[in-house]
Amino acid sequence: MVRSRGSARVSDLAAELEVSVVTARRDVEELARAGKLRRGHGVARSLDSVARAQAPRSAPSHGAGDAAVALVVPERHTYLYETMHGARTVLDAAGIRVALHITPQATGAERPLVERALADGARGLLIAPRWRTVAEEEAGHAWLAGLDVPTVLMERRPPRGSALHAMDSVCSDHWYGMRLAVDHLVSLGHRRIVLAARDDSPTARALRSAFAGIAGGLEEIEDWSVVLSASSSEAADGAAGPAERQGTGDGGGPVTGEGLARLLREHDFTAAVLHGDVDALMLVQQLADSGVRVPQDCSVVAYDDVVAAFGSTPLTAVAPPKAAVGRVAAELLVQRLSRPGAPPQRTELLPTLQIRGSAQDLASDRSTV
């Protein structure tokens, strides 16, 4: 991050990486000792920026890194930070300087950041828009389609026929990821499954739709339901759609561990898919407080696999290829910069399932939920 910006305040690094200032300062000191950056009073500076500051004013600049590529990801989104790091490895190897832009949570915050980056001379763009609602996503299509620099969408798949249908994009195949989760639970004998998922991003909406289609289409599934897993959704379309209501349906508002435990008891659900990881870990803790044990009383598969392995009960999780999405997107952008007229590409990468023991065979000893 320091290399891409030239300099950064330690407090800003701590906030964006979601660590304490003490941790960020300690890491900056370690990098300074290793000769990878320079420390100042509360500021970290890249060696390149220090060299440029010390060079004679008449010294010309050289190299591909003089014109940056803008990399835009949402604030406090650990999942997409892994994608960001994957992209940077490719761009750094190509000698292309990265200008990182962190999008705040305000609606429409991407556009002014992108316009500023282009005004500063960015010659390409990698972007993962937040798009909390369908309306916000549709509003973003028009201005993104009008950009005059090579642009690759990361973890976003515009609908067919939209203004961005022909824009380069690289994302995870979340339908396949959800199928991995459901098939795993079905293979363990579970026939009554609930999905607790967010609804404040294109990924969350894709997962809800995928689960409804998969669970509703499998003869083995006797009953299913979709509930909202977090209260941070601003989506006006946050309630379950018609396809989701084919199951037990959701209760309208975000579910707590107590509410999820009640749903499990009332409908004899034996398994749950939980999106995302942080919500999953919190719900598992709250289920325990309500007397529901994982996996003895309820088998759980999380979705995202950012922190799922670190719970007191390590969670089996679907792991989208986060870093690979960033790498492939960056490789595609590098190609676009050298061959602007090449046909657009829409690439999907397959998630994997990481089994850790939070889901067990239904035939195992199980208390009444």
Rank of each mutant, 00 (worst) to 15 (best):
D120G: 15
V22M: 14
A59R: 07
G247D: 10
R157L: 12
T203W: 02
A117M: 05
V194W: 03
G35T: 10
L281W: 06
S225G: 15
V90T: 13
E234A: 12
L362P: 11
V307A: 05
I355W: 03
D365P: 12
V50G: 01
G291Q: 09
A70T: 09
P112N: 10
A44N: 03
R157A: 15
K36F: 05
T107M: 13
G95F: 06
D237K: 11
V369L: 09
T316R: 08
D361Q: 10
Q105T: 08
D304W: 12
W224L: 04
D199P: 09
G140A: 09
F310A: 03
P74M: 06
L126H: 13
R57G: 00
S231F: 05
A139H: 02
L332A: 11
V273S: 06
A70M: 12
A59I: 01
D168T: 02
G291A: 12
S232V: 13
G238A: 14
R9W: 03
S233A: 10
D297A: 08
S187F: 00
L260G: 04
D199R: 08
R245K: 06
A166H: 09
A308N: 12
P295N: 13
V369I: 14
G6K: 05
A272E: 00
G189E: 07
V43K: 03
P321A: 03
R130V: 09
W224S: 11
A342S: 14
S11M: 03
R198N: 10
T151R: 08
A94Y: 08
L195Q: 02
V114N: 06
R205V: 00
A261G: 03
L195D: 10
M178I: 15
R156F: 08
A8V: 11
F211V: 04
G247M: 06
S46A: 07
S225D: 06
A163K: 14
I102A: 01
D199C: 13
R346Q: 13
A139K: 03
A261R: 01
P158E: 12
A230R: 05
L100D: 07
H190K: 10
G247T: 08
S49L: 06
V73Y: 11
L164Q: 01
E82M: 04
H184L: 04
A145T: 05
V255Y: 13
L228A: 04
A212N: 06
V69D: 11
R25P: 09
D92M: 04
A142N: 01
S49V: 02
V134L: 02
A342G: 13
A117G: 02
S233K: 12
A302R: 10
A109Q: 05
P129G: 12
G124M: 02
V194C: 06
T313K: 07
R88G: 05
S299L: 03
A272G: 05
R265F: 00
I214T: 14
D277L: 14
I193P: 12
L188V: 01
P159F: 03
S312Q: 11
L13M: 15
A87S: 15
E234P: 07
A272D: 04
V2D: 09
R38G: 01
V273I: 15
P60Y: 00
P150E: 11
L287P: 10
H184D: 13
D365M: 14
A272F: 01
L180E: 15
L47G: 01
G216D: 08
E29G: 07
P321M: 08
R88M: 15
V28T: 03
A302I: 01
L228T: 09
S233D: 05
L125F: 11
R97Q: 10
L71N: 07
R5P: 00
A163Q: 11
